[in-house]
């Protein structure tokens, strides 16, 4: 099943998509299986698996620190994919890898696409690779049917938003704030028309991400998007083994108001 189909089937059931972000290797690679299977059990739509990097310029402090802990554990793209592959048969939901570009280039795009597919990766987010630069790995990804997800920023002019929405694969990742990842208390209040606009350019699900950290925000974004991606809050909760918080966020997506 492609990422788009998986996302759509989750959304058709009358709920909103909920995609948690985890930093692979925070707490050690040995807990990766348990974390992913437990999130799957909670009913998340997909899981975004972050790969640590030495220079994560798009990450806020929470995810950056988690990445530093993972790096200190010796975690890298190669051993994350190897770990995922071992229990890929138990994972029924799609995994989306989030990695900066240089580790993929060092791995080799074709070898990466092959190993990522075998590890259950069906989508890819590369925060330092805008659409204009994506040809550097896109062919190799397409051959393995790994969807390359485009981030759409609030600051983009209309024609750029249209171009990104049309080019995205799997789903559209709508960046809800200007800046880096991490919890925000205030969002710009003209977001609803922005999402309506995005939906008009593409049949893909549109997910909101960056800065969403409370069940109330999950519900609020659910009222005008197809679901949310929650990063820093999940990373923080996992680091403190706080599954209650995670459950409350996932639950909020189940009764988010449906348009």
């Amino acid at each position: 099943m492609t990422l788009q189909t998986a996302m759509e089937s989750a959304i058709k059931s009358g709920e909103k998509a909920f995609v948690p972000y985890i930093m692979a290797g925070d707490g050690g690679l040995s807990i990766l299986r348990e974390t992913i299977l437990r999130l799957q059990h909670l009913g998340v739509t997909a899981i975004e698996v972050g790969i640590p990097f030495t220079d994560p310029v798009a990450d806020g402090p929470t995810i950056e620190k988690a990445g530093e802990r993972a790096l200190a554990n010796g975690v890298n793209l190669r051993n994350v994919l190897a770990a995922l592959k071992e229990f890929a048969h138990e994972v029924k939901i799609p995994l989306v890898a989030m990695t900066y570009l240089n580790p993929i280039l060092a791995y080799g795009a074709a070898a990466f696409a092959q190993d990522a597919y075998e590890a259950g990766i069906r989508g890819l987010i590369v925060p330092d690779m805008p659409l204009e630069e994506s040809s550097i790995i896109h062919t190799e990804l397409s051959e393995k049917e790994i969807s390359l997800i485009q981030l759409v920023s609030l600051t983009s002019p209309t024609e750029r938003i249209a171009k990104l929405a049309a080019a995205s694969e799997g789903f559209i990742y709508a960046v809800t704030v200007n800046g880096i990842t991490g919890a925000r208390s205030v969002f710009s209040n003209d977001l609803a028309p922005h999402f309506a606009n995005l939906k008009s350019y593409s049949a893909l699900p549109v997910l909101a991400g960056f800065g969403i950290s409370t069940p109330e925000q999950v519900e609020a974004f659910g009222s005008f998007s197809d679901g949310v991606i929650v990063g820093s809050k999940i990373v923080d909760a996992l680091a403190h083994n706080d599954w209650e918080t995670i459950e409350s966020l996932v639950k909020a997506s189940k009764h988010a108001e449906v348009n």
Binding site: P127, T155, V175
Partner: peptide
């Protein structure tokens, strides 16, 4: 999907490998 050729290359080098938020600026 199409990919356009990136601007600002010196041979293979250079380009604009930045988060989407920086592309418009």
């Amino acid at each position: 999907m199409t990919t356009t050729t990136a601007a600002g290359r010196f041979g293979a080098y250079g380009g604009q490998f930045v988060p989407e938020t920086l592309m418009t600026p």
